[in-house]
Nucleic acid binder design. Sequence first.
DNA 1: CTGTAACCGAGACGGTACGTCACGTCTTGGC
DNA 2: GCCAAGACGTGACGTACCGTCTCGGTTACAG
Lengths: 196, 196, 196, 196
Amino acid sequence: MITSPSSRRRSERSRKATLEAALGLCAEKGYARVTVEAIAARAGVSKKTIYRWWPSKGAVMLEAFTEGLLDATPFTDTGDIAADLRTHICAAVRLLSTSPFGPAYAGILSEVHHDDALAKAVREDLVEPRFACAVERLRRAGEQGQIPADADLPLAVEMLYGPVYYRHVLRKPPQDEATVAALVEHVLRSLGARET
Amino acid sequence: MITSPSSRRRSERSRKATLEAALGLCAEKGYARVTVEAIAARAGVSKKTIYRWWPSKGAVMLEAFTEGLLDATPFTDTGDIAADLRTHICAAVRLLSTSPFGPAYAGILSEVHHDDALAKAVREDLVEPRFACAVERLRRAGEQGQIPADADLPLAVEMLYGPVYYRHVLRKPPQDEATVAALVEHVLRSLGARET
Amino acid sequence: MITSPSSRRRSERSRKATLEAALGLCAEKGYARVTVEAIAARAGVSKKTIYRWWPSKGAVMLEAFTEGLLDATPFTDTGDIAADLRTHICAAVRLLSTSPFGPAYAGILSEVHHDDALAKAVREDLVEPRFACAVERLRRAGEQGQIPADADLPLAVEMLYGPVYYRHVLRKPPQDEATVAALVEHVLRSLGARET
Amino acid sequence: MITSPSSRRRSERSRKATLEAALGLCAEKGYARVTVEAIAARAGVSKKTIYRWWPSKGAVMLEAFTEGLLDATPFTDTGDIAADLRTHICAAVRLLSTSPFGPAYAGILSEVHHDDALAKAVREDLVEPRFACAVERLRRAGEQGQIPADADLPLAVEMLYGPVYYRHVLRKPPQDEATVAALVEHVLRSLGARET
DNA sequence: CTGTAACCGAGACGGTACGTCACGTCTTGGC
DNA sequence: GCCAAGACGTGACGTACCGTCTCGGTTACAG
């Protein structure tokens, strides 16, 4: 984690209020217009306290975003790889279409380019675990014979997530369910999966 | 264009110097640490002049980036759709791996989320024209029977560009040529193209 | 004069419009808020033209003020020195209470401290001629026996004008007629004049 | 005072450094060329801090000037009204001839015309207290029979200060001691004082 | 009676300073 | 002994004018 995970002395009240204020302000004024000053003021917390526990606004937002993210996009295994991928990608798209999570993640990504620690935290705490989950789910599909054993699974995952990021960072309208379904179908077909 | 494209009286010298300074500073200190003040100082141009012709730092960078982009990633038509896509995507990946263009584009994308005018300019002047070129190239491939006539071409283009954006915004290592080749092959296969 | 006195080619229309705009703006927004840009815009004249004929805003204002001043505060000689001084001082006080002349003169004085040319122009074109007139009027009064022959006339003039400047620069309420009358009477008495 | 006189948290170090820098720069480059930026830079203080405690450059200068003024021009009471007035006026003239106080006060006066708060502060904190002192000193002289009981004391004070302001704002050479002596003598005589 | 040169309006230009904002650090005093 | 409150130095923001400088267009003398 980018934040020191805990301290006996850390005030949970301050932590909660800070994260809540951060997301709230993000929803109201957009990520870029949120300042540490404003978060502190809204949370009734001093700037010093924020800087004590997080290195930057991005880190606050990442923690807030992550807390909101985890249950929103579960990886299920119903035995139907296409359906599971559709479910997962749809959930991700839906989350990114939702305020404040969409703007928050966009903002976090925008800081990734000049904040090495944040970049590391995003990749290690957020992206790679879920990437690995997706690969793992495909691997099981391979074991079940739904896709060839030698399929290039990381490439497939990139082909799934890529268009989601593409639309999000360019602020294009997010995929609807049919588009997600087509995407999943194409990706599976590109791996040489049997048609469903 | 986000800038009024011309004014008889506009000083070409100032324009050139500004764009050059913007890219130079971006290479040296990173997009986020470039300020309009610094661009003005380096270019020997007044801040007022920059604000007269561009609404924001992002707009300056976009113009500079666009000028550098256009010849770097041409769309060729050699008759071999796979080869042409490889060529194009490789060029794009290579440009994004190159300072100052990679950082510049990442920075531009980071402003897209809070700058509507810039978002519009990026989409209309940069993304959509090239997206359309790619679709058009695929359409011709369809006419030549290299891919099915009813293929979902926009989806294919998103599957091509998506992973490039995905890696770029997450600061993952860019694709190498083999990965690009695999990507292109998978996308074509997902469309139902005859194997080459 | 601080301005080059004339040129055959000089546009009288521009000159008039400039002076008028300067006084008008001074009345509306106060001397300090008047800018050369605004004068030029209001007068329908280019900044270049203003700078061609006047070295500074203060010089424009001085010319405008002087044109308005000269007939406003004549030196009469009715044979009664006390009455004539009252008339003159009252006229001066009244002019300085009048927009835009009061603010304009206050503004000019405020520039005198950092503009040597303007200081010289104010003294030579405005202050000293009128100072000399006052001394001369007192000298004639001395010849007529209204005040002693050896009176310190410059000191007397300073005692007359001084309080007017004092109130003006401190933005105290200007003298009313009775106060002017008392002032004149005191000054004459201080010179050893016979009581009237 | 134009400034809130105190705040428990205000840094005395910053306040001192600011006032000192303001006077120093005023001496070196003249009031008009002093900028808040330069004061901040020289004092090692942030502009924000200056604007937190003073509303304008003029207010800074006024505080600096006032601190320097108070002991420079005391009102003594030796029992000899003429001598005391000479002493006081000479001290004032001398202060106004001294850098940076002369330029500073001239500059302050120049802002009085477009800054109502400053005008009020100058009058209330600077001019009127001293004016009242002078009237009071004259009143005691009246009690002692040095001047008539019904003399117009405020008018007398204006006749004393007026010429000092007159010369100062017009940048005429300041009065020498003999001129001050003559002025005082004339003013007292104008009140009907017994000759000394 | 027609060049041609000065003047004109317009406004872009390189600058300086403005007054504001947010940063991240530091200090104080109350709980 | 922790924390809110907020002052502090720093530095960039976007704006306003400065005074200089081209631009074309117009005007009015001089050849």
